[in-house]
Simulated scan of single mutants.
Amino acid sequence: MSQPAHILVVDDDTETRELLAQYLSQNGYSVDAAVDGRAMDAHIAARAPSLIVLDVMLPGEDGFEICRRLRRDSEVPIIMLTASADDADRIIGLEFGADDYLGKPFNPRELLARIKAVLRRAGAGNRRTAADAVPRRLRFGPWELDTGTRVLTHTSGLRLEIGGSDYALLMVLLRHPLQVISRDRLYELTRNRESTPFDRGLDVQVCRLRQRLEDDPAAPQLIKTVRGRGYLLATAVEALP
């Protein structure tokens, strides 16, 4: 029997920590809770989490800084919680590498749905049929992707690790090369839910992926915007032996 996914909740509000620990445990997850970044580091050192639920407003090091620090050497999925109604805070979290965000106050059932979706994208508990199988190595433009290790290699020799929501977005594009995919369809395929008005999360992800893949992100040649229609991977994809 497989072990349950391990969720680490980082929030300085006692009521929120206790509520989430109880609710997520009742829904089959192993849960630890931390009050700040230092306590989070101690938990991670003892046991690596499958996903981190990270509050923005924390004493000392805030959630944005923690997220950016974690992304320097880790692809652990991160869902950020923010009490701010300002979309800028949510966009900043995505730019720093968060996989999803949720505003406070929130319904625990919605957070549970977000956790399940992010873990599916990260590969936790993901079962694929033979028809869904992805070749181990894919070449597109100047890049080669090893889908087993999730490492990208450029013709120049540059190597990049890619994971979480960035990997999910890239894989959707690689499955539909030279096809325009609408923003709504991309949102559905990568986040397992519909987009909402003024939601800029997908655009931030595309921008972040361009920063990693394009020679000139300001004039992208691989991931193109088709005005009024969506996004296009403007190169063929070749499966390598």
Rank of each mutant, 00 (worst) to 15 (best):
residue 126 N to R: 13
residue 5 A to H: 06
residue 212 R to N: 00
residue 6 H to E: 09
residue 216 D to K: 15
residue 74 S to Q: 04
residue 117 A to I: 13
residue 88 A to S: 14
residue 141 G to S: 10
residue 159 R to M: 14
residue 226 V to H: 07
residue 94 L to D: 03
residue 130 A to I: 12
residue 168 A to S: 13
residue 83 A to D: 15
residue 213 L to Q: 04
residue 128 R to F: 07
residue 213 L to H: 00
residue 102 L to V: 11
residue 225 T to C: 08
residue 124 A to V: 15
residue 79 I to P: 08
residue 212 R to F: 05
residue 161 E to G: 05
residue 106 F to R: 06
residue 206 V to H: 00
residue 25 S to I: 05
residue 88 A to H: 15
residue 140 F to H: 03
residue 110 E to F: 12
residue 224 K to C: 14
residue 202 L to K: 05
residue 143 W to R: 04
residue 210 R to C: 07
residue 89 D to T: 00
residue 116 K to V: 08
residue 174 L to T: 04
residue 181 I to K: 01
residue 100 D to R: 10
residue 70 L to E: 08
residue 60 G to T: 02
residue 63 G to I: 08
residue 50 S to Y: 00
residue 234 A to R: 07
residue 33 A to H: 05
residue 86 D to C: 07
residue 115 I to E: 08
residue 73 D to W: 11
residue 98 A to R: 12
residue 119 L to C: 07
residue 52 I to D: 08
residue 119 L to Y: 09
residue 59 P to Q: 02
residue 116 K to Q: 14
residue 138 L to W: 06
residue 14 T to M: 15
residue 171 M to V: 03
residue 59 P to L: 04
residue 22 Q to D: 14
residue 167 Y to H: 13
residue 235 T to Q: 09
residue 31 V to Q: 07
residue 193 R to P: 04
residue 62 D to A: 01
residue 36 D to R: 06
residue 101 Y to S: 06
residue 191 R to Q: 03
residue 167 Y to D: 05
residue 14 T to N: 12
residue 91 I to P: 05
residue 106 F to L: 08
residue 164 G to Y: 15
residue 95 E to S: 01
residue 133 A to L: 14
residue 218 A to G: 02
residue 212 R to E: 03
residue 69 R to L: 08
residue 212 R to K: 10
residue 229 R to T: 04
residue 7 I to W: 00
